[in-house]
Amino acid sequence: MAFVNLQNVTYQYPLTKTPALQNVNLQVNEGEFVAIVGPNGAGKSTLCYTLAGFAPHFFKGEMSGTVEVAGKESSKSTLDEWVLNVGLAFQNPFNQISGAKYTVFEEIAFGLENIGVPREEMKSRVEDAMALTGIRDLAERSPYSLSGGQQQRVALTSILVMRPKLLVLDEPTSQMDPIGTREVFGTIRKMAEEGMTVVLVEHKVEWIAEFADRVIALKDGSVLLEGKPNEVLTSELLAEHGFGLSRYTSTAREAKKRGIWKKKICL
């Protein structure tokens, strides 16, 4: 059975009139790297919260259908059990950083402290995680003194250090410089190859084309399309529904329209 299994999931936040997710079916295999694309308001972040158990455990609201990760069902688990398997890096790192710690090192250790990891192991795991994301030189800085992109790396590191089986990332590089983005995508890809399952929301489709195994296109809370990156990201359907295209795809399409390019549209 799939490592992540969503069956007919419909979820509605409290005090809202329409569901944010409608009848979503989604299966992800262990070690697979799946990217979620979609316009703003499509339900991408809500899907992340659902996988991470925050919906409905933290946000409340109404959920139907089943959410399973690593053979456990969300509705039958508590959030503190759930976080042992699933880690979520928030879209806005500012919302994630605890505010309770003075240094980046302590911030990254925070999750491990909460699950009672022995002190020596904690230290080495924090060191390893910081090396992985290239932030060792930030260890003694205050999380709040960092730039947006640096904060984002800290937020990602503080999830990676937990070694979740399922890593959920909501636009993890949105504030990062381009080459830093490439490094982080490379790191995530490596984690997937080592067996971590990754679900990642991203607007920058050119990165998905390079790194993800599969793409799921969400629109109005439902899955519009799924498949290999080059199939999904060049689909006419996506362009019609207001999805972002890579510059390569949009330029190839325009070239075809003008008769300059005769071959198939690729990424």
Binding site: P39, N40, S174, Q175, H203
Partner: peptide, 12 residues
């Protein structure tokens, strides 16, 4: 300051 962060194509 980074106006397009997290914005979809329509919003960009």
């Amino acid at each position: 300051d980074e106006p397009t962060t997290g914005q979809d194509a329509v919003n960009v």
